[in-house]
Write a protein that binds this DNA or RNA. Structure first.
Ligand SMILES: [Zn+2]
Ligand SMILES: [Zn+2]
Ligand SMILES: [Zn+2]
Ligand SMILES: [Zn+2]
Lengths: 138, 138
DNA sequence: TCTTGAACCTCTAGCCACTAGAGATCGTAT
DNA sequence: ATACGATCTCTAGTGGCTAGAGGTTCAAGA
């Protein structure tokens, strides 16, 4: 049994974040010492590692909730889990697509001015004022 | 002179968002009718279009504030503008990089299970539980 | 001119996933 | 016994909006 600080060190999840996850129902309510401090065991450590890893991969708290629910019921179909993963992948791909478009425009805009003129003649400001100068929709 | 609703239609920025921008100081306080309703002219339209375009390109409210400040002083050096644009471009590139890493992991994870087994044996869940199965850091 | 009803006003609260800080209590090492 | 770092709860703040309540104003048609 170890403290929340120890759990925090081992998982690299900040202490207030652990408490937040508990409040959100991702972590079960921790056992407490006589003095009301949380104590954890390896089950808590594993669950928090799962959450941390899923968060690192960009899953939302809500999605992780569903995934954990599934993990707690080994006999259920895992269809929901693959759906969630597929949808997360689709999200990430959509974000990449959008960001690549932005990257193109921003790199054109950035190249357009070397910053040693006056704002009146600045291509950066002119580009922001006029989407017509953009190559694509974004 | 036109109403906030008209401005909203022309810029495709929602009415509450326009009020929010005013509150944040991105838009100057609008003129009002005798009955306290906001009225705008083409200057307001242009400024809001600038903001909208910058937001579409991912600039923060704070960054846009600085850009507008610069735009209002045509005689100042535009160095700050190019700095802001360069930093925004760097942000976008960093995000793309991270998302590409995530995409690789997620696509591996997604391919690993077709969703017709039980959660006990699900590769999606196993992957989330064990970062060791990942190809890269992320 | 009067009436309707859409558009407008302000204010508060909610979203997500935390993060920061205040003020009090607990645990442990000396 | 004392010190002091770690923990507790609670509230509020972050960014960039969005939603809703409850009230007022504007403009068009009768
Ligand atoms: Zn410039
Ligand atoms: Zn554009
Ligand atoms: Zn599966
Ligand atoms: Zn991993």
């Amino acid at each position: 049994m170890f403290s929340i600080g120890e759990l925090s060190k081992r998982t690299k999840v900040k202490v207030p974040t652990i408490r937040y996850y508990e409040e959100m129902g991702l972590l079960p309510e921790a056992e407490r010492t006589a003095g009301n401090q949380r104590r954890y065991d390896t089950a808590g450590l594993e669950r928090l590692s799962f959450i941390r890893h899923a968060r690192d991969l960009g899953f939302s708290i809500e999605a992780i909730s569903s995934l954990i629910e599934l993990q707690d019921h080994p006999d259920r179909s895992c269809e929901a889990a693959t759906d969630i993963a597929a949808s997360q992948l689709a999200d990430v791909r959509a974000k990449i697509k959008r960001l690549k478009t932005l990257e193109k425009e921003l790199s054109r805009i950035s190249k357009g001015c070397d910053g040693d003129g006056m704002s009146e003649d600045c291509y950066v400001l002119a580009s922001l004022a006029d989407h017509g100068l953009c190559d694509q929709e974004h």
